[in-house]
Simulated scan of single mutants.
Amino acid sequence: MSNPADRPRAKSLKPLRSLLPFLRPYRGRLVAALAALLIASGAQLALPWAVGSLIDHGLAPQDAATINHYFAGFLAAAVLYGLFAALRYYLVTRLGERVVADLRAAVYARVVRMDPLFYETTRTGEVLSRLTADTTLVQAMAGVNLSIVLRSGLTLIGALVLLAVTSAKLTAVILVLVPLVLVPLIVTGRRVRRYSRIAQDRLADTNALADETLNAIQTVQAFT
């Protein structure tokens, strides 16, 4: 049975560098996804600015021409955000699918070349679980989750810059409150990561048990 305590705990994201060779064949798609991410984030940040300008310069003086001008800007930002957000999601999802497909092929090629002693100490079901369930987590991380992290980071930086331009005092208050939000998230994230590792190990054990049971189903049924 797999034991999470037997494996070294990851203290950084350096192991993710091993995914870089799988990303290189899709450099163009990756660059396009990053460009779509930047444009979508910029358009998202422009939405509240457009609404504020519409209220300050259009609705307050009751100027119809100014209202139309700023409303057109707001509509353009909304359309731009929707289009490039959808494009970013499509590119990132497709990129994650391709990377995981190549990763599974590489893992399978490695598994079939392992020493016979490896299969004397490792159950087949556990190997299959690593080949399917674990790579699915990599797919989620390398695809949508990574995109969400980058988008949130860019949005946070852009929002802080706009807030600093608008009100330095309010920016200082926000910067004081940010650690109060981040610290619980970091602590909770570490616990979730530990439980996720345990869950993956238990899933591998379950798959191994199911594989052994089904491969000897006649014997199992004879004693049940």
Rank of each mutant, 00 (worst) to 15 (best):
L209K: 00
G153V: 12
V192T: 10
S129R: 06
T206F: 14
A133E: 13
V79T: 13
L13F: 10
G73S: 11
G153F: 09
A168H: 14
A46T: 05
V99K: 06
S53G: 11
I39M: 04
L117W: 12
P48Q: 05
I67N: 03
S12K: 04
R197A: 14
A77H: 07
I39H: 01
Q200V: 07
S196R: 06
S152K: 10
A216P: 00
A40Y: 01
L156G: 03
L75V: 15
A199M: 08
Y26K: 14
D201W: 10
Y81I: 03
A72W: 10
F118N: 04
T188P: 08
R130I: 06
R113G: 01
S129D: 11
S53F: 02
T135S: 00
L38W: 03
G73L: 13
G189R: 02
L95A: 00
T206S: 13
S129W: 00
A78R: 04
A65H: 09
P179F: 06
V176S: 00
S2Y: 09
R7H: 08
P21C: 07
V183M: 13
V31I: 15
A140L: 15
L38Q: 06
L185A: 15
D205G: 11
I55F: 06
V149A: 15
G52K: 00
I217G: 08
P61L: 01
T93E: 14
Y26N: 05
W49P: 00
A76W: 09
T171Y: 03
V51P: 01
Y26P: 03
R190E: 01
L180M: 15
L117H: 08
H69W: 04
T166D: 12
G58D: 07
Y195G: 12
L137Y: 03
E120N: 13
G82Y: 03
L80T: 11
V181Q: 05
L150N: 01
L170S: 04
F118E: 06
A85N: 14
R197G: 10
G96E: 08
Q221L: 15
A216F: 05
A72S: 12
A77T: 02
R191V: 10
L177N: 06
A159L: 14
D56F: 00
G28C: 02
S2C: 11
R193Y: 11
G73N: 04
G143Y: 03
R197Q: 11
P48I: 04
K11H: 14
P8I: 02
V112L: 10
L182C: 07
R104M: 05
K169V: 15
P116T: 10
Q62W: 11
R130F: 08
L83K: 00
V112S: 09
I67E: 03
V149I: 15
R113S: 07
T135L: 05
I39K: 00
N68W: 15
Q200H: 07
V181F: 14
E97T: 14
Y90C: 09
T213K: 08
L160R: 00
Q221D: 15
V51W: 03
L20C: 01
T166G: 10
